[in-house]
Design a protein around this nucleic acid. Sequence first.
DNA 1: CTGGATCCGGGAAGATACTG
DNA 2: CAGTATCTTCCCGGATCCAG
Lengths: 212, 212
Amino acid sequence: MKSYGQLCAVARALDVVGDRWTLLVVRELLIQGPLRFGELQRGLPGIATNLLTQRLRDLEEQGVLSRTDGDRAAGPALYRLTARGVALDGVIRELLKWGAPTVPSAPPDAVFQMHWLSRPARYLLSDHEPDRPRTVIRFGTPADGFDLTAASGTVTVAPCAEDARVDATVMGPGPALVALLQGATGIDTAEEHGVTVEGDATALARVLPRPA
Amino acid sequence: MKSYGQLCAVARALDVVGDRWTLLVVRELLIQGPLRFGELQRGLPGIATNLLTQRLRDLEEQGVLSRTDGDRAAGPALYRLTARGVALDGVIRELLKWGAPTVPSAPPDAVFQMHWLSRPARYLLSDHEPDRPRTVIRFGTPADGFDLTAASGTVTVAPCAEDARVDATVMGPGPALVALLQGATGIDTAEEHGVTVEGDATALARVLPRPA
DNA sequence: CTGGATCCGGGAAGATACTG
DNA sequence: CAGTATCTTCCCGGATCCAG
């Protein structure tokens, strides 16, 4: 990106992450951890390969991520955020909070991937029944999903763990899941729109937004 | 901006404010309040007039700002943030915090305007002497500056007030001021680099970062 | 098949001249 | 002063091509 040439912290930040796709690359690495080129591409539907290459080079040059070469023999390169890159978490979080209300009005042909919900889940959901034993809810599948754990009044989110004891598994179309997590609909309505809840549905109810 | 077409809150936010210059327009209106076209242009050195027109139209259409027509006779149009636009404050704040460390390494020909320091001042400075009476420090001039008030342990920032009783006035070149506010240099070094402090220098020392 | 590099068309950004 | 019009330049997007 061409620099704004301003002695201003906001402009300086945008000099680095203001380009198209750049913050979405960071989003993917924040959510999923270190990724290979193809995995990044899958999480960024619509990006051209040359553009992804360019963004990765720029971000590496700026110290936002590092490319750990899968050096000798076969190893594919891994891209991982540096500490400086992880520090963009606050920016992503604020963008997410600001953009969340507009997600339901997205065009109907918008692409959906389950792991994009992991940060909204972290920031929008909470444990309403702190006295219940620890509960694990799986959203999606290990190929594209996350495990949400409710315990002692707090909610944590992590990539799907192979050995997790899962109390409930939630799947379904994006718009219905978004409405459910935002509290716009309840579980019943969500199921009418294609959401499936396997296992203990009360585990899910434990963390969903409740009407004040 | 072309939509990313993703059912993701971050992508949705960037659909609206991801365009070049867009967040800097919001920055100006957040700092300075409602502005006219020419005032905005002065706060965004380098922007082309047609591009500013386009951004203002887009942002109005998205509900981020409103254009209050100076309708009949002479009244120039005023652009002001809506509640939705003011809600971008968190995004600007996080970008600012992330970009601040890179400001000192900006190109030496970067443009500087004093009011760009008002939000860094709000987030970086604090009142280290809460028992002292209220103190007002003016940075710059009413044409381009802000008043910082330290009282009871907290710091507030506002546009220059005509009737303010100012205890100290600070002016000088951008890089030296940035270094001073970030705690990279002390007042003495800053003055060697062209910073001038008129009035009560201890008022300034009261709010500057202190080595741990 | 993954991980890119190259090429090219369209559209956005940048600069400047012009008008009410 | 507040934009509009025009032109140039460069970035983005899509496809294709290349190497391991």
